[in-house]
Simulated assay, not measured.
Amino acid sequence: MMSDINTQEQNKLSGEPLELERKFKTHCVDLASARVGGETLSCSDDFFAGMENLLKEGRGIFIDGKFTDRGKWMDGWESRRSYGRDNGREFDWCIVRLGIKGVIRGFDIDTNYFRGNAPQTVSVEACVSDVQPNKSTVWHTILKEVSVDAHSQNMFEITEDTSWTHVRLNMFPDGGIARFRVYGEADVNWNDFVDGELIDLAYIKNGAKALLVSDMFFSDKNNLIMPGRGKDMGDGWETKRRRDPGPDWSIVKLASKGSIEKVIVDTCHFKGNFPDTFKLEAMVSDSDDFTNGAQEDKWQPVIIQTKLYAHREHLFLSEIIPDNTQAFTHVRLSIYPDGGISRLRVFGKTGF
């Protein structure tokens, strides 16, 4: 028997579900991701595979021939067989605290590699709570019970504008789910910031969005605005090698219209592949459409083309051209000719 990882082919999206995933990944963030503070709090049962796997990166893997003392090792959340009401559990459930409070636009309930042990149907409830949900918590159904396919990404769109702090994923009657993505938009309470405080407007947890990049061959565009410093070279935005002068670029929608008073460009872990130079521009726009060069004439310089260094956090203050009375909604980071940036921080004030 082979023991290679992913010896069985993954089921990939196509058609309308693929377009829905692209929409979510372009215009939303994963509010439940462990990287932004999402956490599985409790579940009815995770006998075969732990609930914490639900929020991991990727789609989950399969290792042929790998077993634990409880059965087949699976990269997801898997409960024991409950047979419906026979043992007192009508269904299995898992409560997730969102890393970012926000409006939910859709779900990806991925049963990758759960072929003969996927649930028959699922539903999702949500609540707003300042404490860990308990027996008195009032849950609201936001995805009614619906069938799911085994070994598949099951995509669902949500069309309501309520903000939530927690969700409860239910599967009927039992089974396994590899990953759970909660796509949405951050709902930031600006009263949590004191008057005059510099706010990182390019931070995903404050509501920033990485909209469009020229290239993300090696890593995802959203890494640029994630919490903390990158943990390794894969935890950044890195492009493939260009054979022309460049640049590569990334457009970020700021969390709020605001001034730009402090900028950090971090090349953490990028030692032999950091960009030679960078440039930062900004604009004011009520549109997020930058395809095919749209709105190109609106960009104005914030930091002129400037040298970068390997594995370093670069701080820019006096180099910023606009004064603190100017406000912007979007920024564009250009890197020459290519390379990798771990994080971009754009600090400013809101209220314009």
Rank of each mutant, 00 (worst) to 15 (best):
V96Q: 02
G184S: 05
M1G: 15
F352M: 10
N170P: 00
D276E: 15
I104M: 07
R241Y: 10
R243Q: 13
G207N: 04
N189I: 14
R312Y: 15
I320H: 00
I100D: 03
E19G: 13
D220W: 09
R168Y: 02
F114E: 00
D232F: 09
Q300C: 15
W73Q: 05
A327W: 02
D75M: 12
F347R: 01
L169W: 13
D174K: 04
P227F: 08
L201N: 00
R22K: 15
A118K: 06
Q10E: 15
H314G: 01
S250H: 06
M216I: 08
R115T: 14
M226C: 06
P133F: 06
D45F: 09
T137Q: 04
F290E: 03
F107Q: 00
G293M: 13
N223S: 09
G84S: 06
E160H: 03
H151D: 08
N11A: 10
P275M: 08
K135G: 14
C43T: 08
S163V: 11
V131H: 11
F62T: 10
D149L: 08
I158C: 03
S3T: 13
S136M: 05
D108W: 02
I320N: 11
E19W: 10
W93A: 05
A118C: 10
T121K: 07
G106N: 06
M283C: 05
S287H: 03
V96A: 01
G228Q: 11
G176R: 08
V128N: 14
V128W: 04
S136L: 14
A118H: 10
L20I: 14
Y336A: 04
I304N: 15
T165F: 07
D200G: 07
Y83K: 07
Y183R: 02
F328T: 04
E16K: 14
L308T: 09
P301R: 04
G258N: 11
M2G: 11
A186V: 05
K205C: 11
F193W: 09
D232T: 10
P245Y: 07
G348F: 00
A126S: 13
R332H: 11
L254H: 02
V128M: 08
F347Q: 00
D92G: 09
